[in-house]
């Protein structure tokens, strides 16, 4: 008797549970899973957007991909971009969070303004900065630099500077978000531990590196991975500010996918690129889960 009702309960729970998640899961199947399977299928086809062809051609796209200097170029650029964005973003947002969490002068104001770019669309942000970063003496940034006797470069049209420009643009755009997340963590730090350390005579640096940073570590790791993955998806900034140039030096993977698919019409090859990007993101996501487990293990 009891057995039976338990079974019925289980069935009831199962039906209710699935009823709750079905809308989300159904959408997931159609908007994520199905396209993901398709992208693998496309990647083994000769598929051209302009010609409308789709013919199975085995691993040909992958063979071409390995031989394609633009692919390795885009991979390297993505790496450079992430290597620029992630540390800058983390360091500055952490420092700002500590400053703002300390309740020093003007914190509310600063908290307000650094969040402005976050609520601004990436397109608008990129448009404005494209003007500000004009070369010669035409751009306001170079005009400011000329006040202190520096002749600014042609930011978006010189190799190196272009990458630096999009990195800084991107860091400023998203900084506010990470600052807020870190602030949440800073405010949740156990005050007594820090106070105790301070009474023990810990210097500022020791206090930061030995006490505060380890306390913030789980948040830092989470933010780091999210920022890395976010930095791999940079599209609007690149498209509007540099169009992948000069010399393809800001042609990152997502933009190369767009180029191959929608400018060169080679959707099959672009799908192979997308598969590579997917695998990279998958590995990073796995790393995140692994690191979460490890950190919580240390904590307990």
């Amino acid at each position: 008797m009891k057995q039976h009702s338990l079974k019925a309960n289980h069935r009831r729970d199962a039906i209710i549970g699935w009823a709750f998640i079905t809308p989300q899961m159904a959408g997931f199947v159609f908007f994520v899973l199905l396209p993901l399977v398709s992208v693998f299928l496309y990647s083994v086809q000769e598929k051209n957007l302009l010609f409308g062809t789709s013919v199975f051609n085995g691993l040909e796209n992958y063979r071409l991909l390995l031989a394609d200097p633009l692919f390795s170029n885009s991979l390297v650029n993505t790496l450079i971009f992430s290597a620029g964005v992630v540390p800058l973003n983390l360091v500055f947002s952490l420092l700002l969070a500590l400053y703002l969490g300390g309740g020093k002068m003007g914190t509310r104001f600063v908290r307000g303004i650094i969040f402005l770019p976050v609520v601004t669309s990436g397109v608008a942000w990129a448009i404005v900065w494209k003007y500000l970063l004009q070369g010669g003496d035409a751009g306001p940034i170079n005009w400011f630099l000329s006040l202190i006797g520096i002749e600014g470069p042609n930011w978006l049209f010189e190799k190196g500077w272009a990458m630096a420009s999009v990195i800084v643009n991107r860091v400023m755009k998203n900084l506010g978000m990470n600052v807020l997340i870190f602030m949440g963590a800073v405010l949740n730090m156990p005050g007594d531990v820090i106070e105790a350390a301070r009474i023990d005579g810990a210097k500022r640096f020791t206090l930061f590196f030995k006490i505060k940073l380890p306390l913030l570590m789980p948040t830092v790791m989470m933010v780091a991975i999210v920022t890395i993955i976010g930095s791999m998806r940079v599209f609007d900034t690149i498209k509007l500010m540099t169009d992948g140039g000069p010399e393809g030096s800001t042609m990152v993977m997502v933009y190369y996918i767009y180029h191959q698919a929608f400018r060169m019409f080679d959707t099959g090859f672009a799908s192979a690129l997308a598969v590579v990007l997917f695998l990279i993101v998958l590995v990073l996501t796995a790393l995140q889960w692994f690191s979460r487990k490890r950190i919580s293990f240390y904590e307990s």
Partner: peptide
């Protein structure tokens, strides 16, 4: 974590 760029095509 999936970038939309992976599945846009």
């Amino acid at each position: 974590m999936m970038p939309i760029e992976v599945t846009i095509i």
